[in-house]
């Protein structure tokens, strides 16, 4: 659609309420409409009513779910952590209610709050790969489309590493419970690296991942973006370990501080 067309079509965002309720907007239109909703109190009630109407169309479609689905879902749930912290709510649909984080006391049940679904990988490397990828997708419900696309692309890369016949996992944890985990395939020269239990780095700083090899300078494998797993490529067989340091924003050529985490790669098929 042309820019002119979009401008003309903007005259009445209100008219998009019904298509929105039916999930009949294109992704960018949906985002624009939700932006409009955030500023339009009178729209919210109407949109909510239309959404309730639309849901009634679902009443007639119920069908027994396959038995295997029940088994998979209930098994996955046994090891899958629930969201506890507020997700960035840039895209909030009025009928997908806002987070109630902070308005309720944290549940008494003890569960590592920062555990990410990727940690599942360490327990179930290949058998549950499909489930894990599904879980990764599921976490992203509230993200913007661009970020979602990027993360789905990343989930595909992770699935690729997982699918390698020699994919293996290892992890280490320090006394405080902060840890680093990796799933690596020596044949693919790829690894998925996650950090867990660390506080956010200080403002203006970032965590950088390094590949350590004997007699060679450390090589940067990339920067961590929050809790998001990092996919490292081009790992050579001679790699002995991974290290994480805290560096100025944008990363450094070479590490400028002591590692905050280290992990030997011998058990996942490297270090030859």
């Amino acid at each position: 659609m042309s820019v002119l067309g979009r401008l003309l079509n903007r005259e009445d965002p209100h008219s998009l309420a019904a298509p929105y309720a039916l999930d009949a907007l294109e992704a960018d239109e949906r985002r624009r409409f939700e932006k409009h909703l955030a500023r339009c109190d009178r729209c919210v009630a109407e949109v909510r009513a239309l959404c309730e109407d639309a849901v009634r169309l679902a009443w007639s479609t119920a069908a027994p779910a396959p038995a295997a689905l029940r088994e998979r879902v209930l098994t996955a749930v046994r090891t899958m952590p629930q969201e506890r912290a507020p997700a960035p709510s840039r895209e909030r649909a009025p009928h997908l209610p806002p987070h109630v984080w902070g308005t309720q006391p944290p549940p008494a049940r003890t569960r590592t709050p920062r555990t990410r679904p990727l940690l599942l990988l360490f327990a179930t490397v290949t058998a549950a790969a499909a489930l894990v990828v599904a879980a990764l997708f599921a976490v992203q419900a509230d993200q913007t489309q661009d970020r979602l696309d990027a993360e789905r692309a990343q989930a595909r890369e992770i699935a690729h590493v997982l699918a390698a016949p020699d994919a293996r996992a290892t992890s280490s944890e320090d006394a405080s419970g902060a840890g680093i985990g990796v799933i690596a395939s020596a044949s693919e020269g790829q690894a998925v690296v996650t950090l867990s239990g660390y506080d956010a780095p200080p403002s203006g700083r970032v965590r950088q991942l390094w590949l350590m090899r004997p007699d060679v300078q450390p090589r940067s494998l990339g920067l961590f973006d929050g809790d998001t797993p990092l996919v490292a490529t081009g790992l050579t067989k001679s790699a002995t370990s991974l290290a994480v340091t805290v560096e100025p924003d944008g990363g450094s050529e070479q590490p400028t501080s002591q590692p905050v985490a280290q992990l030997a790669l011998k058990s996942v098929g490297f270090g030859e």
Binding site: L69, V73, M80, Q82, E83, P98, A135, A138
Partner: peptide
């Protein structure tokens, strides 16, 4: 459906 049901578990606090 699996994605949705797992998302339900994960995101129920929403």
């Amino acid at each position: 459906a699996q994605e949705v049901l797992l998302e339900l578990w994960r995101s129920v606090a929403r």
